[in-house]
Design a protein around this nucleic acid. Structure first.
Lengths: 131, 131
DNA sequence: GAAACGTATACCTATATGGGAATATGTCAA
DNA sequence: TTGACATATTCCCATATAGGTATACGTTTC
């Protein structure tokens, strides 16, 4: 068997960095194909093909406006990715916490005392929008 | 050009559902190859190949123990995925909020008044571990 | 040493990808 | 109608994938 089709699910569709860039652009608002072409500096047929994949997995919706086609983001199919990966979030923050402990020990061995230390990698809880 | 290699980054490595299953298993603790083979009911060479991909993107570490090889999860390469997809979280919750508004209007049109309503799809903020 | 076990690799196949070039389809303007 | 514009599709290619089968490698046990 070959690799699963890119249109199988959002996991596969989003594995392509160019498609993630397209979604990043659309997070700001509706765009026509040519807008995306100009901003990404990618050939137009390629953009159309990527948009087709995104449409087949439901990540974008289309709307006709004259001779242009306006694409809009539909973020809902990203939720399974978020749910899956979020389950691992605590694991890597624990890992960084252990790193903090090791760093603290190293610093105490080398000198007498310091103020702050840390990796700054603990999970952020503030929700800033896409863009 | 063909599709990017599965070993390019975590996005590509994780697009394969079998590899996500392996990571789910390893989230509980270290496992030997045969343990994974038995729990997933997949041919051993296939498991080894998936583990190789996961190792090349840094998602697992290996440790030799006699004639067995114990694999352990390293969740850190998942962080870029989490960071990217989290930026869209607010967008789909807004979408569900608008759905709530529509539902509320429909209910008010059909009857006089109700108590609670909602989709229950707002993002959860409690951090439960993988498993 | 030989045999059994645990794992990794090599080889094969069918599949479908991302990109490029050319072209088809559809819409507006003169 | 003719042409310009906006987008989608088709054909081509090189690539590498997931899975299967067979086998090589390394370790333990006899």
């Amino acid at each position: 068997m070959a690799r699963a089709a890119t249109t199988t699910d959002a996991f596969n569709a989003v594995a392509e960095p160019r498609r993630r860039e397209i979604l990043d652009l659309l997070a700001r608002g509706e765009l026509a194909v040519n807008d995306i072409v100009e901003r990404l500096c990618v050939a137009q047929p390629l953009v159309s093909k990527h948009l087709r994949v995104l449409r087949e997995v439901g990540l974008v919706d289309v709307r006709d406006e004259g001779r242009r086609r306006l694409y809009r983001l539909n973020p809902v199919p990203l939720k399974p990715i978020h749910d899956w990966v979020r389950a691992f979030e605590q694991l890597w923050s624990e890992r960084f916490d252990r790193m903090d402990v090791v760093l603290a020990q190293l610093m105490e061995e080398e000198s007498d005392g310091f103020g702050e230390h840390g990796t700054g990698h603990r999970p952020q809880r503030d929700g800033d929008a896409a863009g």
